[in-house]
Structures are given as C-alpha cells and as structure tokens.
Amino acid sequence: MEKIPNIYNSFQVDARIVVTADDTLNACQKLPDNTFSLIVSSPPYNIGKIYEKETSLQEYLQWQETIIAQLVRIMQKTGSLCWQVGNHINNREVFPLDIYFYPIFKKMGLKLRNRIVWHFGHGLHASYRFSGRYETLLWFTKSDDYIFNLDDVRVPSKYPGKRYYKGDKRGMPSGNPLGKNPSDFWNIITEEFELGIIDIPNVKSNHPEKTCHPCQFPIELIERCVLAFTNEHGWIIDPFCGVGSALIAAVKHNRKAMGIDRDTEYCKIATQRLNSYYGGTLKMRPIGKEIYKPTGKERVSQIPIEWSD
C-alpha cells in the first residue's frame, strides 16, 4: 500500500495524501486488492452538472456498477463503503438513487449497516414538489468483522445521571460515560440533547469551505465516517473526490488518503486546499459548531415591506 504515492505523483501532497486527475474506473483498476479501510464518496447524480454528462438512468447505473466492482475489490475485509447520494430527476419525476444503488451493492456481497439521513436547512428549491432538504448515506461493510469505533463519535447524553431501576445493575448508571450513540439521522448539533440528531450544513455561498465546485462535500460530514470506520494510519479513498473534502477529513485525523477525479482543475484545488491545511490557513467549519439561527433583527429575516397589508 505504501507504493500508491509512486503510482500517481502529479498532484501528490506528501506520502499520506495522493490526488490524481484520471478517469475513476481507469485509476481504480491500477490499485491493489484489499487495500482501503474506507471508501467514501458522493458520485455524480446524473442530473447534468458541469462535471458530468447526463445519460439514461440505466446507463448511469451500469457505469456506476463497473466502478463499484473495482471499489469492492480494493476494499479491505474489515473495511467500509459509504455512498452518499440524493435523487435523480427526470421530467419532474424523482428517482431516489439510494434505492437503485442498494441491489448493486448487495449483488457484490456487501452488507448494509445503516441508511443514514443527512438533513440540511438549505437545499434544492422546487416549484412542482416539496423542496429537497436531505440526502442519504449508505454504509456497507464487506464482512461481519468490520471497524466501528463508536466511542470516537459518541455525543452528549440527555440524561447522563439516569440509572437502572431493576435487575442486577439496579442503582448503577445506565448510560455510557462517553455519551450516547449519535443515531442514523444527522441534523442539528444544538438539538443533540433533545433529539439525538446532528446538523451538518451543506456548502453554500456563505460557507467558509466554499470553492467553485457546485456540489461540494462539507468536511464535517466525512469526519464522523473517518473516525467511526477507520483506525489511525489507515488508508481512505474517495473515487470522486472533487475538491478534496474527504482527503482533508482524513489527514485531519491522522489517516492516509487517495482522491481521484477526472477534472484536473478540481484536483488542483484539492491539492491547494490540502497545502493550505498543512500551512494552517485553510478555512473550515469546526465539527460540532452550533448552527447559526437568525435573531429576527437581520434585514433578510424580516418580512419585506412589500408584503405588508
């Protein structure tokens, strides 16, 4: 595995991070079996973004299946695969991609551990249906023996002083001193005590991590996957890495990572962001930071005078 930096070095940052501008399938075919402890990505949704060519849904899924086969091959036995997807839209009809991807992963022997809902406050506005405000992250493992560091991602308990009221443990604390399981619904950090959900805002124009990429991963979204599904010094790969958010999440927590993207400009930006991270100048939203809530005093949060009676 240490030979990977020698395979692609045009955008190499250091021995721990490799970014390559290449076709995903072509790049993955060059990689050795049983290598990566985590494969995490958000593939193109086949909706006509500037970095993709829209095709029929069937053609899109067939293309994705050839890539997924390679990803399963290079994933370690104890590894995980996290596939974050939204919806494909055609003639105003919604096709939920996680439903279409599920049988592909199952056919290749992977086992679904969670269907995680990522909810965000601002998303795609719509006129002929309700506006989209969530996407899904499918977490698969290759075997029943997989890495899962729950203690590394626990969140504060609502009632840490709760105790068992019967049985052999009566009177003893019933919770975990490190906190509770964060659940499979990631929404609002400030409501963690009440609902057990975490808010991870998507990357829009005022987000500190925003680049020119139209569908950029927030680093915070990947950090929980990195902490829970890998150990230190493990290798992570994002086969559609865009501007490198998953790679930053990896190096931030002392992991090694490889990113693949066919867009040379995005790969250059990913490398620049990694260099900025090493230099201490990269703007990032801290994991767990409270979501901004309007006070009502801001002009944009007030009702326009034109709407008044």
Rank of each mutant, 00 (worst) to 15 (best):
I4R: 11
Y8Q: 09
V13M: 05
T20G: 14
D22K: 06
C28L: 15
Q29C: 12
Q29G: 15
L38Q: 02
L38W: 08
V40L: 14
V40M: 09
S41Y: 15
P43V: 04
Y45A: 08
E54H: 04
T55Y: 03
L57G: 01
E59T: 02
W63N: 06
E65V: 01
T66R: 09
T66Y: 04
I68R: 05
Q70D: 08
R73K: 13
R73D: 08
R73S: 14
M75A: 09
K77W: 09
T78F: 00
Q84K: 03
V85D: 10
V85R: 04
G86C: 03
H88G: 05
N90Y: 13
E93M: 13
E93V: 15
E93P: 15
D98P: 07
I99E: 11
F101M: 13
P103Y: 04
G109Q: 11
G109M: 13
R113P: 00
I116M: 06
W118L: 02
W118I: 03
G121Q: 10
G123Q: 03
L124C: 10
Y128D: 12
R133K: 09
Y134T: 01
L137S: 06
W139N: 04
W139Q: 07
T141N: 01
F148H: 00
N149M: 00
L150I: 06
D152C: 11
R154C: 02
K158D: 04
K158S: 05
P160W: 00
G161L: 10
Y164G: 01
R170A: 15
P173F: 09
P177L: 02
K180A: 15
K180V: 14
P182E: 00
P182Q: 02
S183N: 15
I188Q: 13
E192T: 13
E192R: 12
E192L: 11
F193P: 01
F193M: 11
I197S: 14
I198E: 09
I200P: 00
N202A: 14
N206V: 06
N206Y: 08
H207N: 09
C212A: 12
Q216Y: 07
Q216T: 14
F217S: 13
F217Q: 09
P218N: 05
I222K: 03
C225S: 09
L227N: 10
A228F: 00
F229R: 03
F229D: 00
F229N: 00
T230Q: 01
N231D: 07
H233C: 12
G234H: 04
W235V: 01
W235Y: 02
P239M: 08
P239G: 07
C241I: 02
K252N: 12
K252A: 09
H253D: 06
H253I: 07
N254Q: 11
A257M: 03
G259L: 13
I260S: 02
D263G: 11
E265S: 14
I269C: 10
A270C: 11
Q272S: 14
Y278I: 03
G279T: 12
G279Q: 11
L282H: 05
R285G: 12
G288Q: 08
E290I: 08
E290Q: 08
E290H: 06
E290L: 07
I291S: 10
G296T: 05
G296F: 05
K297H: 14
E298D: 05
R299V: 15
R299D: 10
S301H: 12
Q302R: 06
I305V: 14
I305T: 12
E306K: 15
D309F: 12
D309H: 06
